[in-house]
Design a binder for these strands. Structure first.
Lengths: 343, 343
DNA sequence: CTGAAAGCGCTTACAG
DNA sequence: CTGAAAGCGCTTACAG
């Protein structure tokens, strides 16, 4: 059983006070330590394989070195391909900045401060990242404890929160422009969860591109609410859509799973993609490369989304600055074989 | 700016000492507190919305209330569907047990104790869960600090480690038995990363079922190393395999992505699945339901894998017991439309 | 340039 | 049944 060396052990071995050890190891600003002393301390610390207790340092300094990333409880948030990439980016960046990352869930309801995330209530984190959903009052309660908050894909869309998202509007617009450039006019849009800002942005982008192209939108025909964003929902909705007398020549889907469902529906209806029907997705999840045909889709840098959130948070922690800003990360269109010139 | 109330505030409001507050709130064993005093303390704590500082409690009690889950750095570990479910199960169970969960990465190389995970070096965790890969010496170094370790899908396969995995052997065996029962004899096995124990177990299960059925295995023909476990690898390997004079009537794949690639290859080769060729996968990832046809696969309870690891760890932390055991979680065969009677 | 000392907010023997 | 006090391992004004 090895017991962790303490700062005292280092001080004794180096022949200095524990204060000096602390100054050297933390490179404390305003403290000038002579080179020889510095060397002695470093050597002793190294020899003992000393690492300061995060807990003790946290208690004394009032900063924990931890960041919490909080998800609203939802059946498949993390196993959701999309957010798992975000997570991965966040973990890497946090490690690079010397922060540990806590993971936690929080319930959808928020009554009183009593229900703040455990890590917040117990003073165990220097900052919080929320993913997707957020309760505005909870954010305020957290920030009132001097703990900054950054939200990824914020929903609802309040403006008094630090937020980052990918450019959903421009992404859908690019997909629509791509289809229009291929000569399509009857372009339907499959969506769901229209109240989420990320989806809303995509719908708006689609609408805007259609408008610019002078294509009138008959909402009843063009916009199809699938109920949810899964494969089966896309399949069912496309089956209906494709059985209409004047069926669309292209379908823009707000995510890749829906698009995969559409592909299956087209197959079932005896339509060939892309010669009879063009299909676009959104998100560039792994599966979108493996469908038959591979799906033309919109891709944002998901890992960067997570990394950027950490960077923002660390900056705010350091500067204690408090202007709330919303940032948008660029997206790109990835053209694959599910889209072609209109028939 | 709200400042967190401390134990002193509660003590003052309740008219008792801070020790009493601590006893009441922690339900300290061996301390008998009168009901009226208990009530007073609880009321005061509630009124102030007091929650003990995890940091201060950690320093005083020498337990942090944190568990770390550590991944070896690898490009797609978390975004890997499989492990994201494991993660999800772990987060839930940890929360239920009152533990916070740290996430971190560690490099594949391990030289000295110097390179232990940061949370371990800094005394910030009560236990560690490794996912998939593990460096035996690192485990020993961590345990020598009285921090227990549990490994999920341990690799390499040392026996002096607490480990949990799904029943890979039995899973592959079931898949093979299923194919054999359908009358198949020429059953190829697509695999990769044969040195990983999870894959190794699957290979052994396949071999065992074939042996029991008295089907001779010509390793060169039957066992195909795809190089990696991805879709494209499965596609390429199947293309070769299916162009042979005596092609197999069934292909057992060690994971679903390979199986999806095989489906595509069959399609490209003009073979119909399942009438011309049966295909099985492993893992039951989301995509396996969406391929055409949906894939017959083996499913373990991935969330349970994560949850169980947490439970084990918490038990070991509580009991300080140290017998190393390896557990295996059951799996089930999910029959879908990619398998049928041999042609 | 360095050290002695207070204090961070708890827990836990130890008394009574 | 309850309280006074030491101590967990650090950081950080404050002296010198």
């Amino acid at each position: 059983m090895v017991k962790k060396p303490t700062i005292k052990d280092v001080a004794r071995r180096a022949g200095v006070s524990i204060a000096t050890v602390s100054f050297v190891l933390n490179n404390s600003p305003g403290q000038v330590i002579s080179e020889p002393v510095k060397k002695k301390v470093m050597k002793a610390a190294k020899a003992l394989n000393y690492h300061p207790s995060a807990i003790a340092a946290g208690l004394a300094s009032r900063r924990t070195g931890n960041i919490a990333i909080v998800f609203y409880r939802s059946p498949d948030l993390i196993s959701n391909q999309y957010y798992s990439f975000v997570l991965e980016g966040a973990i890497r960046e946090a490690a690079r900045r010397g922060y540990n990352l806590f993971f936690s869930y929080v319930d959808a309801e928020y009554g009183a401060a009593e229900e703040l995330p455990k890590v917040v209530r117990e003073g165990n984190t220097d900052g919080v990242i929320f993913v997707k959903q957020v309760h505005p009052q909870m954010v305020r309660d957290i920030e009132s404890r001097a703990i900054p908050v950054v939200v990824i894909d914020h929903f609802p869309r309040t403006s008094d929160v630090n937020a980052i998202e990918i450019d959903n509007f421009r992404g859908a617009e690019m997909a629509a422009e791509h289809l229009i450039a291929l000569g399509h006019r009857r372009i339907a849009c499959l969506f769901a969860c229209g109240d989420r800002p990320s989806i809303q942005g995509r719908l708006d982008g689609y609408r805007h591109a259609m408008e610019l192209a002078g294509i009138p939108l008959h909402d009843r025909d063009s916009l199809v609410d699938c109920g949810d964003l899964g494969f089966e929902a896309g399949l069912e909705s496309a089956l209906h859509l494709l059985s209409r007398k004047r069926r669309p020549t292209a379908i823009l889907c707000v995510n890749d799973e829906l698009a995969a469902g559409v592909l299956r529906a087209a197959h079932g209806a005896g339509l060939s993609v892309p010669s009879d029907l063009s299909v676009t997705g959104f998100d560039n999840i792994t599966m979108s490369r493996f469908t038959d045909p591979p799906i033309t889709t919109v891709s944002g840098d998901k890992e960067e989304l997570g990394a950027h959130a950490i960077r923002r948070l660390v900056e705010i922690i350091a500067r204690k600055s408090a202007d709330k800003i919303q940032e948008v990360l660029p997206v790109s269109l990835i053209v694959r074989n599910s889209t072609a010139v209109a028939p």
